[in-house]
């Protein structure tokens, strides 16, 4: 039996609700995007229902530690097709067992969530490290990203707390939405970029007059801090994988 859901978190939670209502035996959960009809498997389309989703979420909150609930949410943000099924199986497992089952790392779904969460948390941490703001002419600090996972929801508070006295925008080019902080609150935005505009590095005319100077000073610093006698390219690339270089002011040649 295949359960198909719309890819949203409420959809996933509704699927758990439906399973307990119907008890159809062994089920695999797939998102509609990934679903391809199979000749010999029945399928059931889950209709997302906020009330049912809420009940499942409240149930999970009761049964899981805060850390496990965070792992659950992070795994969902990974957007990995197999993760959806693990989340589904994990929920069923949790509801069938007494509280505390979320620390059974011998269970494949508990372990799978721990791994997905680790990857997502790592990506979150990398974004906190590798985002580079550029100051625009009107004093806004702008950064564009295209992270492996959908981490904007979990990096928001870090940047809000840290950069409380400057307006900033972090824009996910891959998922086509961003966050804007207006000195009071953070809100989700979408930007309609004009044709041909460089989304990563706006034209120098739009930037603060000192932006280029500080970027240069930072590159200088990056070079000066290196100890040539200790060169270790392998370690360097291990810490800063090449796919992130495009964000990094110090790794972009002018």
């Amino acid at each position: 039996m295949i359960y198909i859901f719309d890819g949203s978190l409420p959809g996933l939670l509704t699927a758990v609700f439906e399973w307990f209502e119907r008890k159809p035996g062994k089920v695999v959960l797939k998102s509609i995007e990934m679903f391809q009809p199979e000749a010999f498997a029945e399928s059931f389309t889950v209709i997302t229902d906020a009330a049912k989703a809420d009940r499942v979420w409240t149930g999970l909150q009761k049964k899981l530690t805060k850390a496990s609930l965070r792992k659950f949410y992070c795994s969902y943000l990974s957007e990995i097709p197999e993760a959806y099924n693990h989340l589904f199986q994990f929920s069923v497992y949790i509801f069938k067992h007494a509280a505390g089952a979320d620390s059974n790392y011998g269970n494949e779904h508990v372990m799978a969530l721990a791994k997905y969460a680790k990857s997502v948390e790592r990506e979150k941490h990398r974004m906190e490290a590798f985002i580079r703001f550029q100051k625009t002419g009107d004093g806004l600090f702008y950064a564009s990203i295209d992270p492996d996972f959908n981490v904007l929801p979990i990096i928001s508070s870090h940047f809000k707390n840290r950069y409380a006295d400057q307006q900033w925008v972090i824009y996910d080019l891959k998922r086509k939405y961003g966050l804007h902080y207006n000195l009071e609150t953070v809100s989700e935005i979408t930007i309609g970029f004009a044709e041909g505009i460089n989304k990563q590095k706006p034209a120098p005319g739009l930037m603060d007059e000192n932006e280029a100077l500080y970027a240069t000073l930072w590159k200088d610093y990056f070079k000066s801090a290196n100890i040539v006698a200790r060169k270790n390219t392998k370690l360097h690339v291990q810490h800063v994988p090449k796919r992130y270089w495009k964000y990094l002011t110090e790794k972009i040649d002018v």
Binding site: H125, E128, A129, F130, Y221, F222, A225, N226, I227, V228, R230, K231, N232, T233, K234, L235, H236, Q238, H239, V240, L248, E250, K251
Partner: peptide, 15 residues
């Protein structure tokens, strides 16, 4: 937070 790493593989966190 290590914001970058120099080419010798050492973390750069602070100025």
């Amino acid at each position: 937070i290590c914001h970058t790493y120099t080419e010798d593989g050492r973390c750069v966190s602070l100025l």
